[in-house]
């Protein structure tokens, strides 16, 4: 298990920590302008998604929509939920649940021959 473990390094390492916790420290380096940029990108992708409702993209529609959905999803969890600069442990915890859900439920849908 590759959990970030302060104890591995040295006993007593916990004593020498800065006042600000590491996660809060990381967040304070991101400017509000960065968040606004991300939000603009999200808004543009959403507009593109809605556009597929009006413009016929043929067989590309579903892959395009899925790709845009994943892009939005990743942007939010990486930037707004700070996974980009936060502990990898959080990313692993969340991705474990997400991956478990995706794999298990795709298997269920396959059993019902959903994709046919």
């Amino acid at each position: 298990m590759s959990v970030t473990d302060r104890n591995d390094a040295e006993v007593g390492a916990t004593d020498e920590e800065s006042e600000t916790p590491p996660d809060i420290e990381a967040i304070s380096h991101v400017s509000d302008w960065k968040y606004i940029q991300i939000a603009i990108i999200l808004a543009v992708i959403t507009a593109a998604e809605v556009a597929t409702y009006y413009i016929d993209t043929g067989p590309l529609e579903v892959p395009l929509l899925i790709a845009m959905m994943i892009a939005k999803f990743v942007l939010v969890i990486m930037w707004f939920m700070h996974l980009k600069f936060d502990s990898p442990l959080f990313t692993r915890t969340f991705v474990a649940g997400l991956a478990m859900a995706v794999v298990v439920y795709i298997a269920v849908l396959s059993m019902f021959e959903f994709w046919a």
Binding site: M1, V3, D5, N7, D8, V11, G12, T14, L89
Partner: peptide, 11 residues
């Protein structure tokens, strides 16, 4: 388990 182990108690 992840957060409260005694010093030196690695996984």
């Amino acid at each position: 388990v992840l957060n409260m182990r005694a010093p030196g108690m690695t996984l």
